[in-house]
Design a protein around this nucleic acid. Structure first.
Length: 568
RNA sequence: UGGCCUGUAGUUCAAUUGGCGGAACGUCUGAUUCUGAUUCAGAAGGUUGAAGGUUCAAGUCCUUCCAGGCCAGCCA
């Protein structure tokens, strides 16, 4: 079937392999990814995508992308387009692009056949009455007073529903199953509701629309899907999923005589600490102005993460390594970051950028002199080559890289201590200049001309070589350009973002915008290009960045054991 | 007081289907390092939710209990 050593095993692969081993399916695996186009795809959808597309790929089959467009009151073309774009960006290709609305006529014909078989009826109850008569978790429901209408009357009413004779919400078509079933989903579920809404695909052709339960299983069946993999919350619906397919098979048969019935298997959705994946709540973050939109780099949407600088590879690897099971889970965001850094480390070009600048004046360096320093672009990838970076008398370094009266554990600059400027020179701090309010505004240092390029100085008469513990990044003040740098942190303050009131858990510091001094060559990158600001983290130009006004998003910080030690 | 599902290191998953409980991420050491990064080496971390039972042998099978999740939309 496939090279099984490449397939990470889980209960889904076990079931799939058993289904082919037992002869239930003889052809190739065919899965489907059925997003509802009522919002943008997020990291949770990415899990489903990795499973639906990834598994089919591993077993040599295909995946249909099917827009689940059964509710035109919430769905829009904008989302239909964005979903396709996001899936492509993740690197997956679908076998067929389909729409649940492709089957509206077939579904309608089947509904008529089910009415004729006395398996469906038109109910005139109000939503409130239906709810009251559904019973509760512990009590059975009661039959609708309209349940025993004649087939003729049902046929007539349903056709008139379709013809638009009744206002929204006045009638529904229901399956006639069992109002006492312990599974509430089976208590005469609604198949069609009246909705005079314009549909992005079918326009105004229909004013009745099928419910998810009446559309999904049959769509799978029509397409010959072998495995319909979905999240756990649909477990209860599986009984109904199969009921519709079985009844239709009995009453009508499959239009193309497809022999097999689709197998629905449910898995647990993946939750990630400090993130949420509820479309409703994501939308609220936007409408409340907490974030700027669906593609805000703090959003867990594919678009937001893409803009932030995440790579498709890291997202896919994250879900592969996470595995699939049926228990509630909360994956650590740190795990995602780990795979992100792992990939970025290999591909990101290194540059120097100072995001909290303090000026350094090298008092013994000739005024007006500029030297070009050769700097390696990516030590992990020799083919990335080198670049020339200007060095001069006045530089900027990171404010954090100086500390007055620092002890020996601080490897950076303090009075009397020497450090290396990466690929520059070794410098020694002589004096910190303060303003009237005692704030350090400038550091006066001296440099050692024998350390050009950052290299070690020659040994002294006794054969000893001076050493430095710290290496700092820097930019030449005269040559540096300004850039807006956006520093992101978790959007929420709690790992379980929804613990308590979501809006009380918003991290006020999720976005900090600073003006940095950056290497001139940083103007040459495009949105999405992975860059490492040395010693700070991975960054990428924002989609709004222009040559006149450069804007960078921090994708993720570098690991920082010094900061961790300090915070203890 | 309904039906269904799930409980294995801090987290997410494995455990050849009844045969010595592992990995990844995280944590902590140490080495290396022109990024306090990377890389490398190592360590700690488990009453397998609990109690009984079957068996030579139980994470795995049986019983009971406990905890958590999903379901009462004309949403998906």
């Amino acid at each position: 079937m496939t090279d099984e050593s490449t397939v990470k095993k889980n209960f889904l692969t076990e079931e799939i392999e058993a289904d082919f081993a037992s002869g239930r399916y003889t052809g190739k695996i065919l899965t489907r990814f059925p997003p509802e186009p009522n919002g943008y795809l997020h990291i949770g959808h990415a899990k489903a995508i990795c499973i639906d597309f990834g598994l089919a790929q591993q077993y040599g089959g295909g995946t249909n992308l099917r827009m689940d467009d059964t509710n035109p009151s919430k769905e829009e073309q904008e989302y239909i387009d964005a979903i396709q774009d996001d899936i492509h960006w993740l690197g997956f290709k679908w076998a067929n692009l389909l729409y649940a609305s492709d089957y509206f006529q077939q579904l309608y014909d089947w509904a008529v056949a089910l009415i004729k078989a006395d398996l469906a009826y038109v109910d005139d109850q109000t939503p409130d009455q239906m709810r009251a008569n559904r019973g509760t978790l512990t009590e059975p429901g009661t039959n609708s007073p309209f349940r025993d209408r004649t087939v003729e009357e049902n046929l007539d009413l349903f056709e008139r529903m379709k013809n638009g004779e009744f206002p929204d919400g006045t009638r529904v078509l229901r399956a006639k199953i069992d109002m006492a079933n312990p599974n509430l989903v089976m208590r005469d579920p609604t198949m069609y509701r009246i909705m005079h809404a314009h549909h992005p695909r079918t326009g105004d052709k229909w004013c009745i629309y099928p419910m998810y339960d009446y559309a999904h299983g049959q769509s799978d069946w029509l397409e010959g899907i072998t495995h319909s993999l979905c999240s756990l919350e649909f477990k209860n619906n599986r009984e109904l999923y199969e009921w519709f397919i079985d009844r239709i098979a009995e009453v009508c048969g499959h239009p193309e005589g497809v022999p097999h019935k689709t197998r629905q298997i449910e898995f647990a959705r993946g939750n990630i600490s400090y993130m949420i994946t509820s479309k409703r709540k994501l939308l609220k973050l936007i409408t409340d102005g907490v974030v700027a939109g669906w593609d805000d780099p703090r959003m867990p949407t594919i678009r937001g993460m893409r803009r932030r600088g995440f790579t498709p590879g890291s997202i896919k690897r994250f879900w592969e390594e996470a595995g699939v099971a049926k228990r509630e889970n909360l994956l650590e965001f740190a795990k995602l970051e780990s795979f992100l850094r792992d990939e970025l480390n290999k591909v990101a070009q290194r540059r120097m950028a100072v995001i909290d600048p303090i000026k350094v004046i090298i008092t013994n360096y000739p005024e007006g002199q500029v030297e070009m320093m050769t700097v390696v672009n990516n030590p992990e990838d020799e083919s990335a080559g080198t670049r020339q970076v200007p060095f001069s008398r006045e530089l900027y370094i990171e404010r954090d890289d100086y500390m007055p009266n620092a002890n020996r554990k601080f490897f950076r600059l303090t009075e009397g201590r020497e450090v290396r400027l990466r690929s520059g020179y070794w410098i020694k701090c002589v004096e910190a200049i303060k303003d009237a309010d005692d704030n350090v505004i400038e550091l006066h240092c001296t440099y050692d001309p024998l350390t050009k390029g950052g290299s070690n100085p020659p040994a002294d008469e006794e054969g000893k070589v001076r050493k430095v513990k710290g290496t700092l990044h820097w930019v030449s003040a005269e040559h540096a350009i300004d850039a807006e740098v956006r520093l992101y942190e978790h959007l929420f303050t709690k790992p379980k973002a929804e613990d308590g009131e979501l809006m009380d858990n918003i991290n006020p510091d999720s976005l900090k915008t600073v003006t940095g001094k950056i290497e001139p060559s940083l103007a040459d990158f495009n949105a999405g290009d992975p860059i490492q600001f040395e010693r700070l983290g991975y960054f990428t130009p924002d989609t709004t960045s222009t040559p006149e006004k450069l804007v960078f998003n921090r994708t993720v910080t570098l690991k920082d054991s010094w900061a961790k030690q300090q915070s203890k």
